[in-house]
């Protein structure tokens, strides 16, 4: 009798393990699919000509995506410049200043921000931000600036929730110790709380960057999608993700493979960012 009971447990364990690893399988499939489709072009044209090539004319045999790599990094850092201070202040306010009731209202509201579809962000960008930039600063309005603002708002939930968790996990006793020595609230925050939560806060920035660099829909709508390296924040640009989404519908042959190569580069960048972020988070958890 006892034996059958153990067997049932064992079966449950096997099933759960299988399901758990199936997500890993999906990751593996996506990975191999993109590599399988994109790598041949790297072998054919050459890594250097793709990554450092300036000209993207896939139907004429030029597959340079350097301007897009640079553009992707520009919008990502632009998003960080806008999102990081906003997000960190919000996390600090939530954890240190807001009362229980305010927290109960603000946290769900911020989580809702993460649930808004990206096309809606893009829509808002086209209707409001682009015209405001066009009318006040000149240019077409579809620009690095507009994209950074939209992405900056979109990465807020990521930055806020992860840095909030990091700040909340700083022991209450650290704060008390600091207060007891006559520190003001603000002195305690910037001398004790934020430094103690540093690795988690950095991880939140990096995950936010990962989200910004991978965002597609909203970016296409406000970036202008011009194929060049932007020289001012009012210039239009095209990101790696935008390139794939814009052209995949009609691309064939080498052109199609070129888009997958863009995907490979994107994948590598995001993996590196995630690896760095995980490293930061893990160190904090182990401590």
């Amino acid at each position: 009798m006892i034996k059958t009971k153990i067997d049932k447990e064992f079966i449950v364990k096997i099933i759960l393990t299988t399901f758990a690893f199936s997500s890993l399988l999906f990751l593996f499939l996506i990975f191999s699919f993109i590599l399988f489709e994109g790598l041949p072009l790297f072998l054919k044209v050459g890594l250097k000509k793709i990554i450092f090539g300036f000209k993207w004319a896939p139907t004429k045999g030029s597959f340079g995506i350097f301007p897009m790599i640079i553009s992707s990094f520009f919008v990502t850092f632009g998003a960080l410049i806008i999102g990081a201070p906003l997000g960190l202040s919000c996390a600090i306010y939530l954890s240190e200043y807001s009362g229980k009731k305010m927290k109960m209202f603000l946290k769900p509201a911020l989580e809702l921000l993460a649930g808004i579809p990206s096309v809606v962000y893009g829509f808002l960008g086209v209707i409001y931000i682009v015209p405001i930039i066009r009318n006040n600063f000149g240019g077409a309005g579809f620009s690095l600036l507009a994209t950074s603002i939209i992405l900056g708002v979109m990465i807020l939930p990521t930055i806020i929730s992860i840095s909030f968790d990091a700040i909340m996990s700083v022991p209450k006793t650290y704060r008390e110790g600091s207060f007891a020595m006559g520190a003001t609230k603000w002195q305690t925050i910037y001398k004790v709380v934020v430094p103690s939560a540093r690795s988690g806060i950095l991880a939140s920035f990096i995950l936010g960057m990962g989200r910004a660099i991978g965002e597609t829909m909203a970016v296409i709508m406000v970036a202008g999608n011009a194929l060049k390296i932007p020289t001012s924040i009012l210039d239009p640009l095209r990101t790696l993700t935008g390139n794939i989404a814009l052209e995949l519908a009609y691309a064939t042959g080498d052109h199609r493979m070129g888009l997958f190569s863009t995907g490979v580069v994107l994948l590598v960048i995001i993996m590196i960012l995630n690896y760095i972020a995980n490293f930061g988070i893990k160190r904090r958890v182990i401590k």
């Binding site: 022991p171 650290y174 008390e176 600091s178 007891a180 004790v192 103690s196």
Partner: peptide, 10 residues
Amino acid sequence: TVFAVPIPLP
């Protein structure tokens, strides 16, 4: 003030 649990800052 000295607390029950010693809480040196990190």
